[in-house]
Design a protein around this nucleic acid. Structure first.
Lengths: 161, 161
DNA sequence: TTCATTTAGTGGACTTTTGCAACTGGTTTC
DNA sequence: GAAACCAGTTGCAAAAGTCCACTAAATGAA
């Protein structure tokens, strides 16, 4: 177990992160903090900020009218109760509308409102732009590689959960 | 703006995620949720769970005796106040020790305790293992690619923040 | 048909985080 | 020595996620 130089570093630059250097989860977790923060400031005031759920929900409801909360919950990795609260919020903000399904009266169907659809248009532009800008220092081909791998990872995780 | 099939999907499998499919931040954010959750359950009861900070802090203090809170705060992307609370916690759990720096009496120096060192040993094994296991469905070479890119991204973000 | 099981969504309480801003010394610069 | 700056602390408030129990509806098996 090789120890690092024992001088207390005051500059963050040349610090070795120990085993975390080779730990994928570490990078995902820390980079997540940074992107999420940046995204929040990009979307400031837009009714849809903070937390992974709102954006995905808005786009899904817009793309799939009648989609059910539990489906979105699954895709965004939250539990039903958290999803419920999120929907509540978005209904209150008049972004989506909620109906009881005619086929299964336990379930609900979600529909976009005008305001929601308008917001979705903005989101479709802003969100990918933010991501591109934020990661712009990564060459395009690498960004593509990254995305290919992560997309499969995401799919895999969703399937097995 | 091509719309999706308008039948409300009840199965998550074949849903198209719209622009998010091509948005790196989306994958980072969602995968983050999944890894973090998994990591938490792996570390359950270990005094160091929940939140990105504790593990990094423990390893850094162990590797760099005398390191300062603000340096760790920077590397873990939190602000000083959050860092302070985290250190408080870890001191209370007797994982690290806190002294006023002799060179700069505003600053503190952090040192590992015996319990902390013991935990660090466990952590060094468990954390990378969890990451490897969690992402085991990604082929090794791709995992390596991923890490190479993300490492540079992380470095870059830390430097420019 | 009836009864047990599973599923969809709700509600409550709780823990934990985090973000912001103001505030206390201590240090540096000019 | 005064102004600007930096390290860390504290308090507050907002928010997010988790756990668990509960209702109501659907399913399916005896």
């Amino acid at each position: 177990m090789p120890k690092q130089p024992s001088k207390p570093p005051t500059t963050p630059q040349d610090i070795n992160l120990d085993v975390l250097e080779g730990t994928l989860s570490f990078y995902i977790r820390t980079i997540n903090i940074a992107v999420s923060r940046d995204l929040d400031t990009c979307l400031e005031g837009l009714d849809v900020a903070k937390g992974t759920g709102k954006i995905t929900t808005l786009l899904l409801v817009d793309s799939y009218p009648g989609i059910r909360p539990s489906v979105i919950a699954h895709l965004t990795m939250r539990d039903r109760s958290a999803m419920g609260r999120l929907i509540e919020q978005m209904v209150a903000h008049d972004l989506i509308r909620r109906e009881v399904s005619s086929e299964d009266s336990r379930a609900q169907e979600l529909y976009i409102t005008e305001a929601g659809a308008a917001l979705a248009v903005k989101i479709r532009e802003l969100v990918p732009k933010q991501s591109r800008d934020f990661f712009s220092f990564i060459p395009d081909d690498e960004q593509q590689q990254l995305m290919d791998i992560l997309r499969r990872a995401y799919r895999r995780i969703v399937e097995t959960t």
